[in-house]
Simulated assay, not measured.
Amino acid sequence: MKASSFCALLLAACLLGLTTATPSVSRPAPLPPPLSAPVAFDHSAFDKLLKKHVNEKGLVNYKAWKADQTAFNHYLDQLSKTPPAANWSKAEQMAYWLNAYNAFTIRLILDHYPVQSIKDIGAKIKIPFVTTPWAAKFFSIAGEKMSLDNIEHGILRKKFDDPRIHFALVCAALSCPRLRNEAYTAAKLDGQLEDQGRDFLNNPAKNKPGKAAAQLSKYFDWYKGDWTQNNLSVAKWVNKYATVKMDDNTKITYLDYNWNLNEQ
């Protein structure tokens, strides 16, 4: 075979190989699904207990809860060990402290149950200069002994400037706002607080707003400074949630507070 013919055949074979060979392509690994933002604190254990032991009216089955404390004690232990960090969002911090207040209030009731009223516990406290259950330092957060007053007045009212906390904190009395049968969470907090406001202001056992005269919860008297800050007023806060409106000239009186236990 002539050299020219051989070269022609070799070139044809090379060209055929180039057109028929399957290239080896290195495919990149698929990207992992995007991760959601980590939850600063998991309140799901408390959520399950509230759903189990609290009805839609906010009344608590303390007797059943007292016999079902393993998960509850673990949740309280986690609260004590995991205080809010500086990098938590405002909503995460508020949800933590609202749940902590309500959970440790339940702890206090269970520790003294059966009891007719949380105020009865005050007479049983034998600590110098401590006369109310809210002042008793009966739990710890990050190793610091704390009271319910510390959470409400020293943290929530002082730090967050949101009077709606008064719709969410529940001191185990019938005149308190409804205890939600779900935990507060950062993702739902604003909607939960708004719902608490509507429920509280439209419950005639707790508030009776009106245009000429209104009978309101003592919350609007006890915490008057909270409702009137930022150029607001009690009437404006009430009208935000109540179906019956009042004005700045409405005569306001306050309902007697029912301290009986919020028990089923």
Results as ranks from 00 to 15, higher is better:
Asn61Met: 05
Met94Gly: 03
Gln69Thr: 07
Gly122Asp: 06
Gln93Cys: 12
Asn61Phe: 02
Pro84Gln: 04
Asn102Tyr: 03
Val60Asn: 06
Pro84Ile: 15
Trp65Ser: 07
Lys81Glu: 10
Gly122Phe: 11
Tyr75Cys: 04
Ile121Leu: 02
Trp88Lys: 08
Pro84Arg: 12
Pro83Leu: 10
Asn99Trp: 11
Gly58Trp: 01
Pro84Asn: 04
Lys90Tyr: 01
Pro128Tyr: 05
Leu110Ser: 09
Gln93Thr: 13
Tyr101Gly: 08
Gln78Glu: 14
Glu92Leu: 04
Gln116Met: 04
Ile127Lys: 06
Lys66His: 07
Tyr113Ser: 02
Trp97Phe: 13
Gln78Asn: 13
Tyr101Arg: 09
Ile127Val: 14
Tyr113Met: 01
Asp77Ser: 08
Ile118Arg: 03
Lys119Asn: 12
His112Tyr: 14
Ser80Lys: 08
Ala100Asp: 01
Lys119Ser: 14
Gly122His: 00
Ala103Gly: 09
Asn73Val: 06
Gln78Ser: 13
Val115Thr: 15
Ile118Asp: 00
Ser117Lys: 11
Ala67Met: 08
Asp77Lys: 14
Lys81Leu: 11
Lys126Ile: 10
Ala85Tyr: 06
Gly122Tyr: 11
Tyr75Asp: 01
Ser80Phe: 13
Lys57Pro: 00
Ser117Glu: 01
Thr70Pro: 00
Ala85Phe: 05
Ala64Asp: 00
Ser80Arg: 13
Ala91His: 15
Arg107Cys: 07
Gln78Cys: 15
Ile121Glu: 03
Ile118Asn: 14
Tyr75Gly: 01
Phe104His: 14
Asp77Phe: 14
Ile106Met: 13
Lys66Cys: 00
Leu79Thr: 03
Glu56Thr: 09
Phe104Tyr: 15
Ser80His: 05
Arg107Trp: 05
Ser89Gly: 12
Pro114Cys: 03
Asn73Met: 08
Thr105Trp: 13
Asn102Ser: 09
Ala103Pro: 08
Tyr113His: 08
Met94Arg: 14
Trp97Ser: 05
Asp68His: 07
Asn61Ser: 14
Phe72Lys: 00
Trp97Val: 10
Asp77Glu: 12
His74Val: 14
